[in-house]
Design a binder for these strands. Structure first.
Length: 572
RNA sequence: GGGCCUGUAGCUCAAUGGUUAGAGCAGGGCGCUCAUAACGCCUUGGUUGGGGGUUCGAGUCCCUCCGGGCCUACCA
C-alpha cells in the first residue's frame, strides 16, 4: 500500500467555473484519487479556492459585498458544485485560511533568511478614483504602435506589442475609466528565482517521464532570453496574506500583501492542515504528508493542472520550497492538460459562452459529464466539446453499451429465475475464454490508470463493457434456457457477477451509476478484481438482487437542439 | 517577433523508425429477440496538410511551405 498525495489546481474564487476548467484539473485528479483509493492505497486529495488578488476584490465590489463575505459565499457555492460532480476531495480548503496566512509568512521568512528575497523599488500606476494601484492589464489606453484605442498596459492585443503602462497614450483605469492616474514609487519583495535557476533546471531534467507539455513550458521559462527572472511576490492590496517575515513585521512592507501566486500553492499544504484541524487531529496528521523529516519520505505527490498553471508549479512553487531550506515535499509528477474548446470557439467566462458547472448539473447527472469529459480529456492537444458528440458518446457508451447490459441481464434473470442469483450449471470453455480476455483488458486498464492516460483508460473501460454484450450474444441464455436451464443459470450467474465487477472498476469514472449497480446487486463488496475468477463468484447462488431503474436515459435530439441554443450566447 | 504543441477515415482519436496505418461513432449488409428500437457479426471508407530530404525502411527523423492552437513572466 502506497501513500499518494494528490492536488488539483485551485480554482479562482470569482465565479462558477466552466467545463473546460473542470476537465483541466479537478476531474482528472478525482479520477486518479478514486482509482488509487480503490486499489487500497492511502490517498490525500486536496483542493481549495484561490481567493486573493485584484479580480476577487473587483468581483466583490461588483456584487456590492465586502470581499470576505463574497469569498465565503463563493467558496460555499464552489464546494457544493464540487460535491455535485462527486469530486472526492479529502478537504476543499480556502487560501484565505489562517493556516495559509501562517505558512505563507513562514515560507517568506525562511526565504529571506536564506537570502532569496530582495527588495525592489519600482514605479506603479495608482488610480485615485479607484483608490488602488492598478495591475498593468487594468490600465487601458491608445497603443503607441498601432493606434488601437483599447490596448492594455501589459500588451496591445491588436498588434501584440509588449507595452509598459507608461507607454500608453491617454491611459485610463480599466475598472472605472478614470484618467486621474498617477505614477507612484512603491517597494516590493522579489523572489530570487534566478539564483535557483540551475537547481531548478537540474530538477526538471531529472523528470524524464513528465508530459512534454509540462517540461517544455518549464524549459522555456528557464532558458528564454536571459533565463529565469526574479518575480515580485507582493502587491499593494488589502485582501490577501499580510506581508510578514515569519511572525515578525517586515519593515517597509506595511499594508502590503503577498501576491496571490505566492500564497496559492502554499495552500496545498495549508489545506492539508485545515483537513487535520477539521478532523480534530494533531499536527503530525498533516505533516506526515508534507515533511520529509516527519514521515513524507514514502509519499508520492502528483499535481493536476491546466497548461496555464505550469510555470508556477514547475518553477515558482518549487523555488519557494527549495529556497526555504526546509524538507518540504516536492512534487513527483505533474499531469498537465490543454484546453477544452466549446463548439468552434473558446469557453468564455466573461461572455457566458459554453456550459458552466451549475448549468451542467441542472440538465443532466454528474456521470454523463464525467464520462464525456474524461473520455475526451485534452491530453495531447486542445479538444472540443460539441453537443452532437456529447449526445452520441453518452447515448452509445453509457445508455446502450453499459446501461442496457445491466438492464438485459437483470430483466432476463427476473423473468426466468426470479430476483436471485440462479443456481446450477458450471462455467465452461466459453466462460473461461471470457475471463481470460477480461483479465487481460483489466490489467491494461490498470496500467493506463496508473500512468494517468485518461482517454486510453476510458477507451479500455468501454471495451470491457462491450465484452459483456459479446458474451451474452454468444452464450444466448434466452435460447439455452429452453433446452438446458442449468447451463443458462450458470451464464446468468456469471453475467450478474459481471455487473458487480463493472461497478467496481467503473466507479472512478461514473461513481453514481457504479453505486446504483452495486446497490442493485445487493452487495457492498468494492474489492478490486485482482483475481477475476474469484471476483466473479462474489455473488453466490441464492443471493438476492433487484432490477435497477434505467441507469442512463438517452439524450433526445430535441434536448440537444435546445441546449445548443441555450448555451450559445449570454449566460442568464 | 520568439518558443512550444498540433494537422491521420465524414467525426473524435490510436499507432518504441519496422508486416497490408488501426479503434469508436456515423454509413452499408446480415443475424438475434434477453434488453433503454437496445446487442452481436461482417463491411465501405486513407496520396497520414503540400513539397523536398535522410534511411534498406518514414504517420514517426530533418528542411521548407500552409492551416489550427497555446505561452511570452503585473489576470489568476
Amino acid at each position: 500500500m502506497a501513500r499518494i498525495l494528490i492536488t488539483s489546481a485551485i480554482p479562482y474564487i470569482n465565479g462558477i467555473k466552466h467545463l473546460g476548467n473542470l476537465v483541466g484539473s479537478q476531474l482528472p485528479a478525482d479520477l486518479y484519487a478514486r482509482y488509487m483509493r480503490a486499489r487500497g492505497n492511502e490517498v490525500m486529495f486536496i483542493c481549495a479556492t484561490d481567493e486573493h488578488g485584484t479580480p476577487a476584490e473587483l468581483a466583490a465590489a461588483k456584487a456590492g459585498k465586502p470581499v470576505e463575505e463574497y469569498c465565503a459565499e463563493m467558496h460555499e457555492v464552489q464546494k457544493e458544485l464540487a460535491a455535485g460532480f462527486r469530486l472526492s476531495f479529502d478537504h476543499f480548503g480556502r487560501s484565505s485560511s489562517q493556516r495559509n496566512h501562517v505558512l505563507t509568512q513562514q515560507f517568506a521568512g525562511k526565504l529571506a533568511e536564506n537570502g532569496y528575497i530582495t527588495e525592489v523599488s519600482e514605479k506603479q500606476v495608482y488610480s485615485h478614483a479607484d483608490g488602488r494601484f492598478l495591475p498593468d492589464r487594468y490600465i487601458e489606453g491608445t497603443c503607441p504602435n498601432c493606434g488601437y484605442d483599447r490596448a492594455r498596459g501589459d500588451q496591445c492585443e491588436e498588434c501584440t506589442k509588449q507595452l509598459d503602462p507608461t507607454d500608453l497614450i491617454n491611459p485610463r483605469s480599466a475598472i472605472s475609466g478614470s484618467t486621474d492616474l498617477e505614477v507612484r514609487e512603491t517597494k516590493h519583495l522579489y523572489l530570487r528565482q534566478s539564483a535557483m535557476r540551475d537547481q531548478l533546471d537540474q530538477w526538471i531534467d531529472s523528470k524524464t517521464d513528465w508530459p512534454i507539455l509540462t517540461t517544455s513550458i518549464a524549459k522555456k521559462w528557464l532558458h528564454d532570453g536571459e533565463g529565469l527572472q526574479d518575480r515580485g511576490i507582493t502587491r499593494d492590496l488589502h485582501w490577501g496574506v499580510p506581508v510578514k517575515k515569519g511572525t515578525e513585521d517586515w519593515p517597509g512592507m506595511e499594508g502590503k500583501v503577498f501576491y496571490v501566486w505566492f500564497d496559492a500553492p502554499v495552500e496545498y499544504i495549508a489545506a492539508t492542515a485545515e483537513w487535520a484541524d477539521a478532523q480534530g487531529m494533531d499536527e503530525s496528521a498533516w505533516r506526515r504528508w508534507w515533511r520529509l523529516d516527519e514521515g513524507a519520505e514514502d509519499v508520492r505527490y502528483v499535481q493536476f493542472m491546466g497548461k496555464d498553471n505550469v510555470p508556477f508549479h514547475t518553477l515558482s512553487f518549487p523555488a519557494t520550497i527549495m529556497g526555504s531550506g526546509e524538507p518540504w515535499k516536492l512534487v513527483d509528477y505533474i499531469k498537465s492538460f490543454n484546453y477544452l474548446n466549446y463548439d468552434g470557439g473558446q469557453f468564455s467566462t466573461s461572455l457566458g459562452r459554453g456550459v458552466f458547472m451549475d448549468q451542467a448539473l441542472s440538465i443532466l447527472p454528474a456521470d454523463y459529464w464525467r464520462w464525456w469529459l474524461l473520455s475526451h480529456a485534452p491530453e495531447n492537444s486542445d479538444s472540443e466539446f460539441t453537443w452532437e458528440n456529447f449526445q452520441a458518446s453518452v447515448n452509445k457508451d453509457l445508455a446502450d453499451v453499459l446501461g442496457n447490459l445491466v438492464s438485459r441481464v437483470t430483466k432476463f434473470c427476473r423473468s426466468k429465475f426470479g430476483e436471485v442469483v440462479p443456481e446450477g450449471g458450471e462455467f465452461g470453455p466459453q466462460e473461461a475464454a471470457l475471463i481470460e480476455e477480461l483479465t487481460t483488458r483489466i490489467r491494461t486498464y490498470e496500467a493506463h490508470m496508473e500512468a494517468m492516460e485518461v482517454r486510453k483508460a476510458a477507451s479500455e473501460l468501454r471495451a470491457i463493457w462491450v465484452i459483456g454484450n459479446e458474451y451474452l450474444q454468444a452464450a444466448a441464455p434466452w435460447s439455452v434456457v429452453k433446452t438446458d436451464p442449468e447451463q443458462a443459470a450458470a451464464q446468468v450467474r456469471l453475467a450478474l457477477n459481471l455487473i458487480r465487477v463493472y461497478a467496481v472498476i467503473s466507479q472512478p469514472f461514473i461513481p453514481d451509476a457504479a453505486a446504483a449497480m452495486m446497490d442493485a446487486m445487493g452487495s457492498t463488496s468494492w474489492d478490486w478484481p485482482v483475481d477475476l475468477q474469484a471476483a466473479l463468484q462474489a455473488l453466490p447462488a441464492g443471493h438476492a438482487f433487484t432490477v435497477p431503474e434505467v441507469l442512463f436515459r438517452k439524450i433526445t435530439d430535441e434536448e440537444r437542439a435546445e441546449w445548443q441554443q441555450r448555451f450559445s450566447g449570454i449566460r442568464n
